[in-house]
Every structure is written in structure tokens, then in C-alpha cells.
């Protein structure tokens, strides 16, 4: 199944829009974070009987991002994963592992999926 429709959404309208979709009976499939410069672009994928809604929201990496786990509980795992991978922080997260869902408490490297850190790790090879 191929899907290309992605609507751009202002980050201030995120909670309203997600609440509306929840009330209409949509299921949260997942969120796809993409690093674009110093912004983090998150694509929210929703589905209802194979009718999909994809919302693209750009967020500033340095300020805490808005969590939707209060509306969709299952988002907590995805948001914790994003915290681990991109070194960002979510506010209002119902169950936060504080960036240690995958990483051990003692692990030094944070945000391994950001383009900066991979260059440092393998010495800029390839």
C-alpha cells in the first residue's frame, strides 16, 4: 500500500488536530521523525479503515516538544524512542524514560541519529 499525501500543520495546532482525529476514531500508526537542519520534522501517521491522514509538523529541537501521549497513550513509546535517537525532550510525556529507553544510564553518546554525532563517531568516514 502506497501513500504520498502528507499535510503540513502548524505546531501550535497539533493538539487540537490530534484530538479531533482521535474523536473521529482514527488510530495512531506511528510518528516518523526526520532531522532537517536544526529542526525536527515529525510526521504523524493516522489510519481509519485504511483511510490515512499524515500530518507534518516542524518543531524546534532546542525547546521541549509537545507530547501527544495524553491523547494517544501508545505514543509514549514512540516519543521515548525519539528522545533517545535525537536527543530532544518532550513535555507532558505520560511515562518518560528520560532518554534512556534504549541507552543505558551510563552511556555517553546521546542523540545517535543526528547527523552531527555519527560524523564524530566514525571519524567522518564515508
Amino acid at each position: 500500500m502506497i501513500d504520498r499525501n502528507i499535510t503540513t500543520l502548524e505546531d501550535s495546532r497539533l493538539l487540537d488536530e490530534v484530538t479531533r482525529l482521535k474523536n473521529e476514531g482514527y488510530r495512531l500508526v506511528t510518528m516518523s521523525p526526520v532531522e532537517v537542519g536544526d529542526k525536527l520534522e515529525i510526521i504523524y501517521h493516522f489510519d481509519k479503515d485504511f483511510k490515512t491522514v499524515n500530518l507534518r509538523v516542524q518543531m524546534d529541537k532546542n525547546t521541549p516538544l509537545q507530547s501527544i501521549s495524553g491523547i494517544y497513550f501508545c505514543a509514549f513509546l514512540i516519543e521515548n524512542e525519539i528522545q533517545d535517537h535525537f536527543g530532544v525532550e518532550f513535555k507532558d510525556l505520560v511515562l518518560s524514560f528520560g532518554g534512556h529507553l534504549y541507552l543505558d544510564e551510563e552511556a555517553g553518546i546521546r542523540a545517535p541519529y543526528c547527523s552531527m554525532s555519527i560524523k564524530q563517531e566514525d571519524g567522518g568516514k564515508k
Binding site: 500500500m1 501513500d3 504520498r4 500508526v29 516518523s32 526526520v34 510526521i43 501517521h45 499524515n54
Partner: peptide, 20 residues
Amino acid sequence: EGEVITRSEQPRGELLYYVR
């Protein structure tokens, strides 16, 4: 070039790929 979302059914359920 471009971006796309694909889904399929795995033995364990729905699989989603997002490629840019």
C-alpha cells in the same frame, strides 16, 4: 527522489516504511 509511505502486513501485523 521524493518521499513515500508504504505499508504491508507482516506475520505480526502492520509494517510501515517511510522513505525520504
